[in-house]
């Protein structure tokens, strides 16, 4: 076969950038780790069940080990007691990783403005998408996954994300 025949190769090869290909693949194969603590976790169960079916967005491979996951879904209230565990789980996830704060409590503490509730998980870990609602409807959680997919497409190159983030528990 004459490899110098460029016409032949034109048919078989598509040229693109490596980031674009990798991000295209990532986009449809997010592996979520669900840090489900409260009411929102029940709505996440509904999101994963057949009616709302998160697998339509390629994110149905729920991982129960953070080391397998690239999307942390924090669904529910996080208390001060739980904060070190959340941080440990986040740290165990390999880069690149994304975080969704599902519901009012994870986003801001919600109406639990009191001595025991962390006032938003962004005090501990960086958050990419906040979902409003108490708890949000499954459609809102799906929308957050789609939002992550849109953000992910714009990732410029391979690098560790959020290096400048400093959480409240990072120094201790």
């Amino acid at each position: 076969m004459d490899l110098s025949n460029t016409n032949l190769l034109d048919e078989a090869i598509v040229t693109t950038k490596i980031d674009a290909v990798v991000n295209w693949g990532r986009e449809a194969s997010l592996w979520p780790f669900v840090f489900g603590t409260a009411c929102c976790a029940i709505e996440f169960m509904a999101t994963a069940a057949s009616r709302y079916d998160i697998s339509r967005f390629g994110a149905e491979v729920l991982r129960f080990s953070p080391r397998h996951a690239d999307l942390l879904v924090v669904a529910g209230t996080v208390s001060y007691k739980q904060a070190p565990i959340l941080k440990q789980i986040y740290d165990q996830m390999p880069e690149p990783k994304w975080v969704i704060a599902v519901g009012a409590c994870a986003s801001s503490g919600g109406f639990y403005d009191n001595y025991t509730t962390l006032q938003g998980i962004d005090e501990i870990v960086p958050v990419d998408v906040y979902v409003a609602g108490c708890p949000p409807r499954p459609e809102a959680i799906l929308d957050a996954v789609m939002d992550i997919q849109r953000q992910l497409k714009r990732e410029p190159k391979f690098e560790v994300r959020n290096t400048d983030f400093k959480g409240k528990l990072d120094d201790v």
């Binding site: 001060y80 904060a83 403005d113 009191n114 001595y115 509730t117 006032q119 409240k168 528990l169």
Partner: peptide, 13 residues
Amino acid sequence: DYEITKGQYCTVS
């Protein structure tokens, strides 16, 4: 006499 909003961080389990 404990204030409701006085949260306390936990560092280790």
